[in-house]
Structure formats: C-alpha cells, structure tokens
Amino acid sequence: MIKLENVSYTYMKGGPFEKKALDNINLEIGKGEFVGLIGHTGSGKSTLIQLLNGLIKPDCGRIMIDGTDITDKNTKMRDIRFKVGLVMQYPEYQLFEETVLKDISFGPSNMGLDNDEVKHRAEFAANLVGLPKELLSKSPFDLSGGQKRRVAIAGVLAMEPKVLILDEPTAGLDPAGRDEILFKIKDMHERMGLTVILVSHSMEDVAKLADRILVMNKGNKEMFDTPENIFRNSERLTEIGLNVPQVTKIVDELRRRGMPLKEGVYTINDALYCIKKALSKGEELC
C-alpha cells in the first residue's frame, strides 16, 4: 500500500539553517495495517507523514502509494491527498466555515462530487466520529475542544481516504475525550479496513492499538516491528528519549527481581496472565 525507497528530506536546503529531517528511509506498510509512529520531538515523524500525502516532496528517493509513484512529476497531488487523508496536529485550528456540516463538506466538495453525495458523506463522517446531528448546523467555533477535534477528523474522513494518518489526534484532550477518539479510530480501522498511521507520544495508546510500531530517531528508522518486539528494547527506547508502557516497566522490574516472566509484555491482560502463570508454577502464595 505504502512503500518508501531511499527517501531523504532536508529543511531549508542550502540556507544557513539547513537541517536534515529524514535520512535514507526505506519502509513498507501493508493494506489495512494499523501502524503506530513514535519518536521524540524532532525525530522526523511529522516530516514523514507530510511526505506520504505529497504536502512536501523528498529530496531523493521514491514514494509509492497504492502503486502510484507520488514523487513523479505527472502525478496529480490532489488525487493522492484524497486517497491519503491526513489529520494534522491540533486540527481544530483549520476550521473556518459557518456551520459544522459545511466545514466537514469542504474536503468532499473539493473532490468535485455532486451536492447530494457531499452531504451524504459529511453526515456519514460526522456520525462516524460521534457528532450528534443537532451540532451539524452550529458554528464550529461554538463547540468544545473535543468536539472541534472530531469535526476536523470528520472533515478528513468525509473524503473516504484509503489511508488515514493522524498526528497526535488526542493531544490536549481530557482522558474521556482521548479514549473515545482512539476507540472510534480503532473501530473505523476494523470496520472499513482502513490503513491507519497513528503518531503518538503515548506508549500505552500505541501499544494498545497498533499492529506494528515504527520508531523514528534523528531522521532515521530506528525500529519497525510488532509491539512485543519493540518493547523488548526498553533500554534502547529510553536512550533515544522514549519510554515503554508502564505495565512493561513493572513486568521488567519483576523479572529483574527473579520472577520468570517473558520479555516484551505490553498489555495489562498479557501481564496479568504471565504473572498468574509464574505464580502458580512457583510455591503457593497466599
């Protein structure tokens, strides 16, 4: 679905503030995969996702989306953007229309669809992210932070992209809003077979949701593997300014103190199961 070959990108090339953001990235993401993207600030995450829908062009290398080379001059960028939906950080700041429905319709109407189809898609997308119908005729500026965020996500979903990229969709939301948005994303991924790339600073969230995790460090691909294999390397992750889920830390500490537990445990259920098993094997504890 997505394939990167030797992709590099430099900011302000040739100027006094030149900065290499991505260095020779090779990557392949399959159809319907849920990929978590983690890395400390400035590791190249945002650059990478902007490359994927053609907002910026790589200095060298090739990017293939669904069989189309988007680095090719003749590729129509807008078509790629409808295929790869990108929800940027704090997307509520891009809202501008008079009503929520109109704002969600901005994307699909840019696709040149007829009005009925646009309205249908907008209402469908609003429903997907859990926006009640009575909000659709309100001004987006009268909504709460979490609701605005949902309007912005719906605005991208209404284009019915095949790939959905979200850059920290839960930043600045309260725990309830965060869980709900993540649940909706997971739900859409499962029901519609959407390929999802989720950028997040929360190890717990990525661990819970992703099939595979891509770890970026200083513009390089550090690791790209299943959560289990990624969180085995807690030392390396800490070294590059990242972390492991809390439950992994607990299990690692228990193992260090002599409990026979496996490496790379990253969910609470898995930890519970392992600890129970380890306890029942050993002496009976009361």
């Binding site: 807008r78 994307g107 696709m111």
Partner: peptide, 13 residues
C-alpha cells in the same frame, strides 16, 4: 504554512 498544508490535505487548490 500549517493551515495551508491542512487545507491542501483536504484538497484545497
């Protein structure tokens, strides 16, 4: 730049 990119991502021309 951010807003332009966000709107371009929604197909603005």
């Amino acid at each position: 730049d951010k807003i332009m990119k966000a709107q371009a991502a929604r197909g603005a021309d």
